[in-house]
């Protein structure tokens, strides 16, 4: 049996009077790809942000590599080296070159030598086809290029789990494919464990081993990727799939 990387138990989150996540339970094994799907406002992004401590939760447990996380800022800060995250708005640091963006984590947080970190960074840049951009500033890159760099920046820390939060939502349609290909390759070639929030159904169908379908902060169903798109278990998921053209 594959090693369990992350487990979420009875997670509850509310913000003021709004109850945003209700009794969330799921786990993810090494090498597995889980897609979080659901209509807008269903709590997908909030859930994924709870998994690296960017969003506080009120009840329940996140268990990483068999150890329950005591949710203090300091603990999360350590764990974020193992749980990489890429955001919708890429957010490269505009004051640093591409290479320095990538090296910041490995050199300052993980105390790797600059040479070693640079070698890793360049290898990753080669994989996303952007090696020649290492000395430019983010403002000189297109959205798609920025997002690929943001993925490299997260991977440079050598995480065990990657969280992708609608990473193609603000990209030009023609840039989307390139970014999605990188994520697919990461799943197939590097066997990276990942949780993906996306509205790209084709993409989800192609890479998801399992789908969690969320609505109003509840997990309505957890189904195998192959099954979900052909034969969803709930009527709500069926409606949702029909409403998405893909």
């Amino acid at each position: 049996m594959a090693k369990q990387i992350l487990k979420v138990e009875h997670l509850e989150k509310s913000y003021r009077e709004n109850h945003i996540l209700h009794d969330i339970n799921f786990s993810i094994d090494e090498g597995e790809v889980v897609a979080l799907l659901g209509p807008s406002g269903s709590g997908k992004s909030t859930l994924i942000r709870c998994l690296n401590g960017l969003e506080p939760y009120q009840k329940g447990n996140v268990i990483f590599n068999g150890k329950p996380v005591v949710p203090t800022e300091k603990n999360w800060q350590k764990l974020r080296q193992q749980i990489g995250m890429v955001f919708q708005s890429y957010d490269l640091f505009p004051n640093l070159t591409v290479l320095d963006n990538i090296l910041l984590g490995p050199v300052k947080v993980q105390h790797q030598s600059r040479e070693a970190a640079k070698a890793t960074a360049e290898k990753l840049l080669d994989q996303v086809g952007l090696r020649e951009y290492e000395n430019v500033y983010p403002r000189q890159l297109s959205g798609g290029q920025k997002q690929r760099i943001a993925i490299v920046r997260a991977l440079a820390l050598n995480p065990e789990l990657m969280l992708f939060d609608e990473v193609t939502a603000s990209l030009d349609p023609e840039m989307v494919r390139g970014v999605l290909n990188i994520i697919s390759k990461l799943a197939q070639d590097s066997n990276m464990t990942m949780i993906v929030v996306t509205h790209e159904m084709n993409f989800a169908q192609q890479i998801a081993d399992r789908v969690l379908f969320l609505e109003d902060g509840h997990i309505l169903e957890q189904t195998d990727g192959t099954k979900f798109f052909v034969n969803p278990q709930t009527d709500r998921a069926k409606e949702f799939l029909e409403s998405m053209d893909f």
Binding site: G84, F87, V109
Partner: peptide, 16 residues
């Protein structure tokens, strides 16, 4: 705010 969050996401502490 996103700059702060992506900084935190690569493991920087508050000072960094």
């Amino acid at each position: 705010k996103h700059q702060r969050e992506s900084g935190l996401a690569i493991g920087l502490n508050r000072w960094q």
